[in-house]
């Protein structure tokens, strides 16, 4: 049994890749899947902070690739979920620290350890790190904000997924693409200030797998080092839960994409 590889990518930086990787991996673990999440951003380690395990990093991804540590030594077990593990990025500045063969070895090793899913948190850009993060993927979650530069970069990434991956090169069928719209603000969409779900879907020619509303809870969660999906009372957390369920094949309607209608009393008294 080989692990399913999911890359979380976007092209543009700052759109929510690491937030999404952390919540996706945690959500898969919550669904009972043995999951590892790998930070591919060599030189700029961040996933460990979002997952809340930054003080437990001893060995990292590059150490495993170079044979300086075993996979077991390097995987950091999550505090909350027994079947969730983090592999941190190295803080080395050497861009060539990762190689295709090295990444393949680690992914094969994780399959051998009985992992069901491996989530690859891609760095921004389309350079080597981003290429390696997507190369072995079976699924891709393309994170996009309702904003012009992010949408354009996503289209570029969708093109790369269709041509520069192992599946594309070996003709093993396409990487399954999932578009995830984050930082969505229904109130601004309603007054025509922000691209809508439909706009983004039409421009990119692909349906969304989820819409994560812009939410204060995302910052709170990252402050605390707890993936926002764990905050089951937050809209962002619930939207991530829906997204994970859809990636696992469940059908769920989109939530939090419309402006909540004001009740009679709210309209009279404001609020």
């Amino acid at each position: 049994m080989t692990a399913e590889i999911i890359v979380v990518t976007s092209g543009k930086g700052g759109v929510g890749k690491t937030t999404t990787s952390a919540s996706l991996a945690t959500g898969l673990a919550m669904a009972g899947k043995k999951t590892a999440v790998i930070d591919f951003d060599v030189g700029l380690r961040n996933l460990d902070l979002i997952m809340g395990c930054e003080r437990r990093v001893v060995y990292d991804f590059v150490n495993v690739v170079h044979g300086e540590a075993t996979l077991k030594q390097s995987l950091i077990k999550d505090k909350r979920y027994d079947n969730l593990y983090v592999l941190a990025a190295s803080q080395t500045r050497d861009k060539d620290a990762l190689t295709q063969e090295g990444v393949e070895k680690v992914l094969d090793g994780l399959s051998g350890e009985g992992f069901d899913y491996v989530v690859c948190d891609s760095p921004a850009g389309i350079e080597k790190g981003a290429h390696l993060a997507m190369y072995f993927a079976d699924h891709a979650v393309v994170v996009v904000n309702p904003e012009v530069s992010s949408v354009r970069d996503s289209d570029r990434i969708l093109g790369l997924l269709a041509s520069k991956t192992r599946r594309a090169e070996k003709g093993e069928g396409p990487v399954i693409q999932h578009l995830l719209l984050t930082r969505y603000n229904p109130a601004r969409v309603a007054i025509g200030e922000m691209l809508s779900v439909k706009d983004v879907e039409e421009i990119l020619g692909i349906e969304v797998v989820g819409v994560i509303p812009e939410s204060e809870n995302v910052l709170t969660a990252s402050n605390n080092g707890i993936p926002v999906i764990v905050d089951v009372n937050s809209q962002a957390g619930q939207a991530y839960s829906d997204t994970v369920a859809r990636i696992l094949g469940e059908e769920r309607p989109l939530r939090f994409v419309d402006v909540p209608k004001k009740g009679f009393l709210q309209r009279v008294f404001g609020g």
């Binding site: 012009v148 949408v151 025509g192 200030e193 922000m194 691209l195 809508s196 706009d199 421009i203």
Partner: peptide
């Protein structure tokens, strides 16, 4: 938003 949509 409509300007953004057309440009994109």
């Amino acid at each position: 938003a409509s300007v953004a949509r057309e440009r994109l």
